[in-house]
Nucleic acid binder design. Sequence first.
DNA 1: CCGCATCCTCATGGATACTG
DNA 2: CAGTATCCATGAGGATGCGG
Lengths: 207, 207
Amino acid sequence: MVEKGKRSYGQFCALARSLDVVGDRWTLLIVRELLPGPMRYTELKTALDGIATNLLAERLKSLEANGIVERRLEDAGVGYALTPWGAGLREPMEALGRWGVPLLATGQGDDVFRPRWLTMALPALMRGATASPPVELGIETDGFLLSLRIDENGPSASVPDQRPASVLTAVPDVVVALATGAITVEQALAAGEFEGDANVLRAAFAG
Amino acid sequence: MVEKGKRSYGQFCALARSLDVVGDRWTLLIVRELLPGPMRYTELKTALDGIATNLLAERLKSLEANGIVERRLEDAGVGYALTPWGAGLREPMEALGRWGVPLLATGQGDDVFRPRWLTMALPALMRGATASPPVELGIETDGFLLSLRIDENGPSASVPDQRPASVLTAVPDVVVALATGAITVEQALAAGEFEGDANVLRAAFAG
DNA sequence: CCGCATCCTCATGGATACTG
DNA sequence: CAGTATCCATGAGGATGCGG
C-alpha cells in the first residue's frame, strides 16, 4: 500500500530521485518554458500546445510542492516562476538538449517552433564559446526578442528589459538553421537573411 | 492520425525531441544500468526492481530502434550495450543526478541501493576534481568492485578488468554518505569505516 | 534457466465541458 | 483567467505462459 498519488522508482539514487520529481510527462517542458522568465497559466497552456489543462494544473502543483516552481499572486493575475533550485535544472536540460541536437536533423515536419525556446537552445549549442570584451546582441524572431550575451563565462540568453543596442531581425527558420549548424554564419550573412549588425552576429556565433 | 505506438510532443526543440526518445518511464534508468558496461536481459530485470517484463522488452526495442542501445548475440546469451551516441547520455544524466543530490537528504527509507549506481554517482559528484599524477583506487561495496580514477581530465569510474592495487572495502552506507557529503573523508577515516589505503582514499576524495 | 509474449487490472494521460 | 470535473483512451504493473 503505497501512498496514493505518488509513483516512485524506490531507488536510493540521485538520478532516480530526480526522475521521481521531474520525470513525468510534460514536466521538464514546463520548466523549459519558465527558464526565460515567469509565465501565466494560460501562457503555459498555449505555449505547450497539446497539454491537457488538468495535467498542467497537476504538474504545476507538484512542481510547487517540490520547491521547483513558485506560485505568485501578482496584480495582473497568477504568475509561475522557477525557484533558484528549479532554475538549476538549466544545466541538465541544456546537456540533454545538446545530446538531442542530431534528432533535429530529421526535419521539422509538422512540429511547432517557438522563439522562446531559443533562450535555452542557443546558449546550450554555443557552450564553450567565450568572448572578451563581452558581446551582446538582441535577436528578434516572430516578434519575440531575446538577448544573447557571450562573455568570459560563456554564452547566456535572457529576455531583455529594454531593447538592446544591436538587434537582429530574422525569420525563425534562419535562427534555427544557425543553431543546429545547418548553415554557417557566413552563409546566413551572404544570403542577407538578417537585418542588423552583421559584425555583432559574426562575433557572437564565432565566439 | 499519428503513427501508432509513438507519442511525440510535436515540438521542434532539441530537448523535446530528446524526451520523445528517452523521456518515457524507466528509459533513462535502463541507460544508467548500461553505463558501466553491457548487461543481460535478466540482469536488467533484477537490477531495475519493479519494472514489468514487457516494459523492459519494449523499452529495449525502442532504444535499439533509436540507435541508443545495441543488441549483441554473445555466446553467453543476449547482451545489451550502449552505442557511442547512447553513451553520450552520461553527461546530461550526471548533470541531472547532481541536481537531484539534495533529494537524497530525505533519507533512504525503503529505497533499494545498488553499488553499481556509484559508477555514475561518484564521478558526477566529484566533477571538477583533478589530480596529477593520476590517482586510481578500487572501491568494493556489497561485493561489487569499481575503479575510481582521477586524472587531469577529472574523475571517472569503471568496472576494472583486474583487481586494482589499492582496494577500499566499505559498507554501501559509508560510500553513499561520502558521496552525498553527509560525512567527510576525515570522519570516515577516523571512524575506521574503511579497510585499505586511507591515503589513496583521501587523495581521491580531496581531489 | 533465459528471453521474451500474452493477458488482465488499474493508474495515468488526454480531450472536452464546465465553473468561480 | 485559472483552473476543476468528468469521461475515455492509453500505458504501467504484475502474473503467467512458452519456446529455445
